[in-house]
């Protein structure tokens, strides 16, 4: 079977599973909205620079908890079944794609929810949206791969945080810079350079994930 077709099938399966139970998305949404509400109650008035930092912290934690179950939500026998049918590369790519969709949805809803209670300081909407898109892609690649690693361990939620937080920092810092620019907190002439860095980190990581994942899944 053609690899794109395989990815399509696996992605379709993941989306169908999600729609059927809608456990993940509703759980994560509840998580996001309670976090936003806690932040709102404790800050009341949120300055734009604080808004920027808080927004990305909320996204970071929500993304980790959204992605962590990528490889544990189905039991290992069924995982084995997928692996025997499909190419491991298409398994990881379909998971990454699925998580990109999930995280993009998540960050858009966070933006909506956060703007609703704390105001929307975004001046350049297109650029902010671009930051969200690039953020979802970067987060999804890193977290999906790390969740594949940590799913091999028993206590995987803690391991996930320990392994992924230091790895995500370069992406996160560049994103915060990019979105600070979209909020006009700073005037940055090097936006293209930031976007280029993010894209090249993403490309590097996705390549590595494709090469390394086949070594990971087989037990």
């Amino acid at each position: 079977m053609n690899i794109f077709k395989e990815i399509g099938f696996l992605l379709h399966k993941d989306l169908r599973l999600e729609f059927r139970s809608s456990y993940a998305i509703s759980g994560i949404l509840l998580y996001v909205f309670s976090t936003i509400f806690i932040v709102y109650i404790s800050f009341r008035k949120v300055q734009p620079d604080v808004w920027n930092a808080l927004f990305w912290i909320i996204i970071l934690f929500a993304s980790v908890s959204a992605v962590v179950k990528s490889f544990v939500q189905e039991n290992s026998a069924r995982q084995l079944y997928y692996y025997s049918l499909a190419n491991p590369v298409s398994v990881i790519l379909s998971k990454i794609l699925y998580n990109i969709i999930l995280l993009l949805l998540l960050s858009l809803l966070t933006w909506l929810g956060f703007s609703f209670v704390a105001g929307n300081p975004v001046k350049d909407t297109a650029q902010f949206f671009l930051a969200l898109l690039l953020g979802s892609v970067g987060f999804s690649i890193t977290f999906t791969f790390i969740s594949a690693i940590s799913s091999k361990a028993e206590n995987n939620a803690t391991l996930m945080a320990i392994l992924s937080f230091p790895l995500i920092i370069p992406i996160l810092l560049t994103l915060i810079k990019l979105s600070a620019n979209a909020l006009r907190l700073m005037q940055d002439t090097g936006v293209q350079k930031d976007i280029f860095i993010l894209l090249s980190i993403d490309l590097l990581l996705v390549g590595l994930a494709m090469v390394l994942f086949p070594f990971l899944w087989k037990d």
Partner: peptide
């Protein structure tokens, strides 16, 4: 698993120390 992580971690080290 640690070999896989090591390779992955090393490649994030490059942007961290030498690019950013």
């Amino acid at each position: 698993i640690s070999a896989v992580y090591n390779i992955f971690a090393f490649s994030t080290l490059i942007p961290l120390i030498y690019v950013i």
